[in-house]
């Protein structure tokens, strides 16, 4: 109910690195921008597969309820996640989906952005494993809730030296592709 409260949800299948994407988003806000942020997740018993979500709430004021209630921006990397987790996407919210994997979109008045996130990671960046960072770059671009610089700093502070360039490329590619796809 605080007007500055912004809710982001990363959803997909377990093992896609969405929890890490949420953590990095939270770090960008809480450490690099001095905002309040809460990240939480829910997942099933499976270590891999199954629908999984990671939520980040960002605000200028202390955050009470740590879970999303009315989602401002939703990422769905699988159809199952899109079906399961799009119910509380708010009117006028942002819906980012992987265009290869999510064919059926929920009804509602959303800003829908579609591009092949996983394939972009695989073909343009070079490694499927950084799909989460591609998605993170895209969410940063679309939500505008943290700056591009803060988010990139948060990404790079998390990765070992050898993977800095790969992750930088993943982030930038996601960021740019999202803006192109939104038009």
């Amino acid at each position: 109910m605080s007007c500055s409260r912004y809710e982001i949800r990363f959803s997909g299948a377990g093992g896609q690195g969405l929890i890490l994407a949420g953590i990095i988003m939270g770090e960008a806000a809480a450490i690099f921008e001095g905002k309040q942020a809460v990240q939480s997740q829910s997942y099933g018993p499976e270590a891999r597969g199954g629908a999984s979500k990671s939520e980040v709430i960002i605000s200028d004021e202390p955050i009470d309820f740590p879970k999303a209630t009315s989602v401002d921006a939703l990422l769905a990397l699988t159809q199952q996640a899109c079906d399961k987790y799009s119910k509380d996407l708010k009117e006028g919210g942002i819906l980012l989906v992987d265009s290869d994997l999510v064919k059926k979109l929920p009804k509602g008045n959303f800003t829908v952005v579609r591009f092949p996130i996983i394939n972009t990671a695989k073909n343009e960046v070079g490694r499927t494993i950084v799909a989460n960072i591609v998605a993170l770059g895209a969410m940063v671009a679309l939500s505008g809730i943290v700056s591009r610089e803060s988010a990139l700093k948060a990404v790079l502070s998390r990765v070992p030296e050898a993977f800095v360039e790969l992750n930088r490329k993943a982030f930038e590619t996601g960021y740019n592709r999202a803006l192109e796809a939104r038009g």
């Binding site: 953590i23 939270g26 809480a30 450490i31 309040q36 809460v38 939480s40 997740q41 740590p66 879970k67």
Partner: peptide
């Protein structure tokens, strides 16, 4: 579990 698993500043 929520307090144990959530991340905050």
């Amino acid at each position: 579990e929520i307090v144990g698993h959530m991340r905050e500043r």
